[in-house]
Amino acid sequence: MVTRFLSWTRQAGALLNKDFKAEFRTKYALNSFLMFAVTTLVIVSFAVGPYYLDPVMHASFIWIIIFFSAMAGLARAFIKEQERGTVYALKLSTTPEIIYLGKFCFNLLLLLLVLLVIIPFYFFFLSPSVGNPLLLVVVLLLGSLGLTGTTTILSAIVSKANVKGNLLPVLAFPVLLPLLITSINGTRLALEGYTFGEASSELRVLSSFFVIMTTVSLLLFNYVWED
């Protein structure tokens, strides 16, 4: 069992390493990700201007930016394989589970990298007050895990369609709705300074969403990936 797990980790790690190497040479996903995030952020900051926003509005803006940036960037991992014809080479080399895990890790790191850029920028431009910064980090992390877990399998489905990237937000939105509502609520609680105990139901929903979506994705990915 341990040997198998280690082998999975090594194989998924190889895929992650390959994707990062290719990504930093082509900036295929990162550019669309960052462009969308920064543009939206600037538009929001201009629109809001000097007005005071309450924590609910800040939380909503943060997750709208994260959601649409993710939709712009995360679909690329599979679309690129499909468009460049490398999908056969990959299919013939490893199991669907390894591919899901490798792509999930790549998407997660990419999303966290973008969050590292846009969250400080958001606070710089819009200056919301944060009552519990640690809770905010945990909510962002759990929300990102659920968002990535769902988007990874959906982008594999979308990569086989003709319209590809445009389809992802449409497919993802209904599935991600519970996650987005909970993440917005959790972020609001963090901004208002609530404790971990008071935000425990949000944290439980976010953790459960991630575990359920990742488990279901691992079980179903074989059917999505194979023709």
């Binding site: 390959k18 190497k21 040479r25 082509t26 460049r84 014809g85 490398t86 056969y88 080479a89």
Partner: peptide, 8 residues
């Protein structure tokens, strides 16, 4: 129909 990674 099989392609390898051109960026590697």
């Amino acid at each position: 129909d099989l392609y390898l990674y051109e960026e590697l």
